[in-house]
Write a protein that binds this DNA or RNA. Sequence first.
DNA 1: TTGTATGCGTTATCAA
DNA 2: TTGATAACGCATACAA
Lengths: 334, 334
Amino acid sequence: MAVTIKDIAKHVGVTPTTVSMVVRGDTRISTATREKIQQAIKEMKYRPNYIGRSLVRGRSNVIAVVSGFFSSMFSVEIMKGIESKLIPVEIKLNQYATRGMKERVSELFREILYSVRPQSVISISLKPEDDVLMEFQKEGVKIIMIEESAGNCQSVKVDNEKGAFSAVDYLIKKGRSKIGIVSGKLEDGTGAAAVLERFNGYRSALSMHGISYDPKRLIETANFSFEDGIESAHKIKKWDAGFDAVFCAAGDMTAAGVIRELQETGTKVPDDIAVVGYDDIIIASVIKPSLTTVHQPIFEMGYTAINMALDHINKKEYTGPAVFTPKLVIRESA
Amino acid sequence: MAVTIKDIAKHVGVTPTTVSMVVRGDTRISTATREKIQQAIKEMKYRPNYIGRSLVRGRSNVIAVVSGFFSSMFSVEIMKGIESKLIPVEIKLNQYATRGMKERVSELFREILYSVRPQSVISISLKPEDDVLMEFQKEGVKIIMIEESAGNCQSVKVDNEKGAFSAVDYLIKKGRSKIGIVSGKLEDGTGAAAVLERFNGYRSALSMHGISYDPKRLIETANFSFEDGIESAHKIKKWDAGFDAVFCAAGDMTAAGVIRELQETGTKVPDDIAVVGYDDIIIASVIKPSLTTVHQPIFEMGYTAINMALDHINKKEYTGPAVFTPKLVIRESA
DNA sequence: TTGTATGCGTTATCAA
DNA sequence: TTGATAACGCATACAA
């Protein structure tokens, strides 16, 4: 069996209480006793059992990170930002994925709240129902929302509308007018704030330039995948509305699929159809033509989220940026 | 405060023991009592506190996944495989990253063993020292190693030597003879099993065809990154050894960098220099020319690892594949 | 079929 | 400066 506080206490000839105090760095213990105990801790290789500690404190030293999938490019980049922060070893990062099951979101959050009892939660593009949020507040567990927001939660956001606007505005200024949008599902309530905001940016850029919106140029996709892009390209070629540009709000991976399939079917990018992506993941600079896209400071968002979480744990007030501005990166595809 | 087993017991008029038994599905409880208790659990929204449960069981319901970085392509694909398995909600997936600090590997594993007390550990390309492995065995915590192996651990592997061999063999049969290798650091002890095996595959393919190995055609890189590829391309152009092909054992991302930079500096791929990658991540089919590469069944490896972990928890014997064979996927770059 | 008693490892409160 | 005692929520051996 593992070494416990009791073993140390017995070995040194003090009580568990005293050992516990030394372990936690309480200054009231005399130097002599402290040194004896620290010596024993080293010799006997004692390590605190986090489970016992959590039980008595009513809370585990966990930061829960919740996402639809941790394998998506966006989540990965967020995780990079989170991992770039030096997190104290005693704080655990737990991952929970809904695996795309929207109906499970609230249930998962409740499960995390009551059964895991974390210090705080970082939610990636996910938002549970209002009564769940209330329960979190009641229990004093903070939720940090990335790409979502709610009254009593801190959130880390990018201005999606501005990002989309800048992309479409650019296309129009380059002389394009039959501009389509490849978007995530619009009607889909949960976790679709970003989708809607980008769509709004697209429409407002059009109307600002006096171009009327044609619903035939809206292509909705579900998975933000390369394959979605290929499928979208088929629709673009098939639909009679005609296109001279596509703003791929569904992200670079999908944009890469669009470009690939357009090329395969004889359409020149950007000559026949210009393509602008969203995210600026590495693939954007690797494909040919390289992708003009809206850069998202995703890494920084992850870094910000973990800072907020740690500040909350340390009872400090977070005072840094929380809203990031995306930036159009011009390359070859538009 | 949250609802506990005691609250339920008081409400129904039984003891906590009885409630506990119902929660865990013990069949000895009479239907009448069981139903009353289940009713109360629903009404009062009781959820078991995993911390209490873990304490008394001496083990938390955690599967720890350890990796250098969770943001690497390889880890991401492994995570996809892990996530594709339906994991019972009461089992938690914890992530621990060494963040590339090799000297922290053993310490991190000990920390996980004694302070987290997980059910099992999935180690991605990481191997702690032997005495740490012994301690895990003594505590009955199983380590499942991906891309590594040790006496008393289950491991999930690919035959790297065979994969590298098939790539280089293919290049030679296509008429290339001045074949370089872009590899991870060879001398680097920890976590470098795969690097060495691929290098061996490269050499044995050469020697099988009577081509002598020229150390000037070995380019070592550190980070498996796109930038590493760019740097490698510079060396390829600069070195007097001459190249008509490059086997990029350091992976597709690096291969993409090599190709990009060769093209930028006027070298035609594959006409002047053929390039073969390793991994077959999505980028391989997206770049131009698309990348001939060795497909790694990384997803399946992750899926296998989580199955091994769950089988261990359920005290079943895992009986599936554990060694995967990579397969050369021929595209345009070679 | 249900209850009693005990303990898991740690910390908090209060007393000495 | 240290110790005694109780408590956190749950599970288990054993008794009834």
